[in-house]
Simulated scan of single mutants.
Amino acid sequence: MADVAKATLDALAQRLDEVEGYLHLDARRGEIADLEKRGAAAGFWDDADAARATMARLSSARDDVSGMESARAKLGDARAAFELGEEMDDEDLLGEAAELCASLEHDLSELELSSWFSGDFDHGDAIVTVTPGQGGLEAQDWCEMLFHMYLRYCDRRGWKVTVNDAPVAEVIGLDRATFTVSGKNAYGMLRAEQGVHRLVRISPTDDKKRRQTTFAGVEVLPVVPEDVEVDIDPSDLRIDVYHASGPGGQGVNTTDSAVRITHLPTNTVVTCQNERSQLQNKAAALQILRSRLYELEMARREAELDELRGPKRAIGFGNQIRSYVLYPYQLVKDLRTGVETGNVESVLSDGDLDKFIVGYHRWAAGGGESSS
């Protein structure tokens, strides 16, 4: 037991050194000092949106530094408990050391994730849309299953979810589901889920109980901050209002509170109907539209660069990323990383997705996307 525990402590110490290097803590401390100086300047809150963005960056930098300092302290406590427990042959102290090691392992995983998120919006909020694919009624049911899986996952991580649009299908499931996720690293984490998700099971709508394969697509967009310019000409928008069809109470379902915005030049359509107020639904729809138009512009620029680079070998959006098999055996497997589990219930019902999402980011950080 002692040899294993000491080897574990040494491995955690090495991993902690590596994570500290990834995070560039000295640079982060300098960033904190600079941001604190800006926050104390006169007139800082004159531009409220810019000020909030600065404070969010400050909070993220402070979290990284305090997280590393806490991890260092926890490693020291674990070493002290282990060494004293070994010297005194005290199982309680050795057990305490083991618990501290397990806690430190989790902390380091979170810090590693933060170090991998280098995109402009990775540390911010996300807009997730789940859309039924091939499979008819089955696909609508699969859309609802994925929607609830993500709600559960967000709850596990302590993120706030605002449902923007989740109209109930006529027979079973959902026509689509769009929701905004607010929390640290929400976009960075959830972008691992973008792609096509495949379900294999005995059809609940088939009297002959035949096996059915269905698909749903997951789109993940960043919530684009207000200080990022996205050019939207009001004359390019067609705004329609209609009765909300989803849940939300009498006020939602009996008034023209639902909003559909069509961006005519790109034919991008966004709907929102889960708020009671038409104005609230319009504001939420415009936020989603800004994110979609921003992504379209980024994709256009990337396509122009691709023409210069030549054909890409990497598999792009639209390909199956994960299979959920309920029959004839039970297995959830990520086809990019190879991460899998036979505990399908924990994934679909309990939202136990960290093994897949962390596995994806570890794979991508190691160059997985370029080698696929």
Rank of each mutant, 00 (worst) to 15 (best):
R152D: 03
E110L: 06
F121W: 08
L151A: 07
R176L: 15
N164D: 13
R152Y: 03
H148I: 14
V168E: 11
D122I: 11
E144D: 12
C143Q: 01
G119W: 14
S109C: 05
N164Y: 08
C143F: 01
R152A: 13
A169R: 08
Q140V: 14
E110H: 10
F147G: 03
E112N: 03
D175F: 04
V168C: 07
V171P: 04
S115K: 02
F147L: 05
E138V: 03
M149A: 06
M149R: 00
F117K: 13
M149K: 02
G119D: 08
V163F: 12
T129P: 00
G119Y: 13
G136N: 01
T131G: 03
A166G: 11
D122K: 09
G173N: 07
L146F: 04
A169S: 12
G158L: 10
V171Y: 10
D141Q: 05
E138W: 03
E112V: 13
D155Y: 11
E110K: 09
H148F: 12
G173E: 13
K160D: 15
D155P: 03
G135Y: 02
R156S: 12
D122W: 07
D125Y: 02
V128L: 01
Y150S: 03
S114W: 12
G135W: 00
K160L: 05
G119Q: 10
H123L: 12
G133Y: 01
G119C: 12
W116D: 02
P132I: 00
H148T: 11
